[in-house]
Design a protein around this nucleic acid. Structure first.
Lengths: 246, 246
DNA sequence: CGGTCCGTTGAGAGTGATCAACGTTAGTGG
DNA sequence: CCACTAACGTTGATCACTCTCAACGGACCG
């Protein structure tokens, strides 16, 4: 089975040469068990990770043990990049489900910068996209009610899973505990429960053990505080490399 | 006066060639009046901005008009990068004080990727650093009390201003309204007022019209939920371009 | 001198937190 | 297949941090 490269091609379709480089990464895959730690905060940064299958999370710890989940990673995502700027890893990466990952050592990343302008710009824009996602998450947590937050999160997840080809009939795998969702959205698990329950009772979503169905996408979107961002796609690459400015 | 290039050199000291490129940007400076909009959300993305002097902000708007401030930009910062990944600008850039900025068109950015590996990696790591800052902000808003948030923000500002050489005797310019701080930290201006007032009454900070003094840095840091991240500096560049992995 | 923006303060309300208990599910080992 | 256990989901009662609404004072600016 072909690894999910859709995230690499989202800003620039890949050449054969690029595909070769990226393909090399997939060579040595590792399988991490559910709930195991891929890299802990504070550990040395020897590279980044490519998530081939399964779900994972990035989170940061506060002094007193409180945890903020920063991102839910889905198949195709790159993980651990922010820590490249730090002296030691600044985020903890964990497998939410059993997960297949590839380790990409620093040196391999360096080679990309030297060898492929296309991939370099792709990685650069991909990082900017993650930044947009973080800005979005911040605006959810900073300004919206629990119901708006949960709705927005579910729809975002839905869109991303769809892009990865993991949605079927508005139905998808949903392995997140309510505790986890709380740590992601800045709520307690108790309140996440009440909110999900309310969405369920209203007929917007249907929860069945480990699965989630968006019963009423439009109704759910109406609860959402903002429209999802529209990404540049190929034009992002063109803007930077074809000098459209005059 | 030399423009503040410290943010460019933080991950890799610049060669003459690099300095030339970066210097070119400073050629056409523009002065934006206080409270004026540099680029509004939804407008086309024709380039990014370099903040030479003054303060600016990035913010995102919600449907109903609520606003989340995402970042306070200080002299030396690059602004508008996340929108490179979007079809239209996803953040509004505004001048908080009178501000001197340089416009960097997309084509100029493209040239960097083609001409300077050093600057490319520098920009890349700089972006990762911004991501770390966002993760930090998210963890503040998601998990901490008003007092912790405000303390952490003030100290972060202090550190960044210090890096830009804008602190004197633990004293610095502070042109932010309480409304603005509220929109940044997910609080109302009323509550920001009470929190600042309390910090002032406790003797941790001293506010004098437009200025802020950190009276008790250690006391303030004790209120903070997490330690500030340690950045990689030059080693970040080395990791990626000297292939230290074996 | 008047207007507007900003900071300040008070009273009251509410969303979401906390605490606590119980039910349910899944995983484990006999 | 069942007993046992731990993790997770559910629910209720109570609490409190922060919001909302409202008013007033001061500073700055035209």
């Amino acid at each position: 089975m072909q690894p999910p490269f859709h995230r690499f091609a989202e800003f620039a379709s890949l050449t054969c040469h690029d595909l070769e480089i990226v393909g090399d990464w997939s060579a040595n895959q590792r399988i991490m068990a559910r709930n195991s730690t891929i890299r802990r905060e504070g550990e040395p940064v020897t590279g980044v990770f490519f998530l081939v299958a399964g779900w994972a999370s990035s989170s940061v710890m506060l002094r007193d043990g409180r945890r903020q989940v920063v991102k839910v990673h889905l198949p195709g995502d790159l993980m651990g990049f922010p820590s490249l700027a730090l002296a030691a890893a600044g985020e903890t990466l964990e497998a939410i489900t059993d997960a297949t990952i590839c380790f990409i050592p620093n040196a391999s990343l360096g080679k990309i910068f030297e060898q492929s302008l296309r991939l370099t710009v792709g990685l650069f824009l991909s990082t900017q996209k993650e930044r947009v996602a973080l800005m979005q998450g911040l605006s959810w947590v900073g300004t919206t009610s629990a119901q708006e937050r949960v709705s927005a999160f579910i729809l975002d997840l839905y869109d991303r899973l769809d892009a990865a080809g993991l949605v079927k009939d508005q139905n998808f795998n949903f392995p997140l505990t309510q505790q986890f969702i709380g740590e992601l959205l800045g709520l307690t698990s108790v309140h996440v429960n009440r909110t999900l329950r309310r969405l369920d009772a209203t007929g917007l979503i249907v929860r069945t053990r480990g699965q989630l169905r968006i019963a009423d996408p439009d109704g759910l979107r109406a609860l959402t505080p903002q429209q999802p961002p529209k990404f540049a796609g190929e034009t992002g690459w063109l803007r930077l490399c074809r000098g459209t400015a005059d």
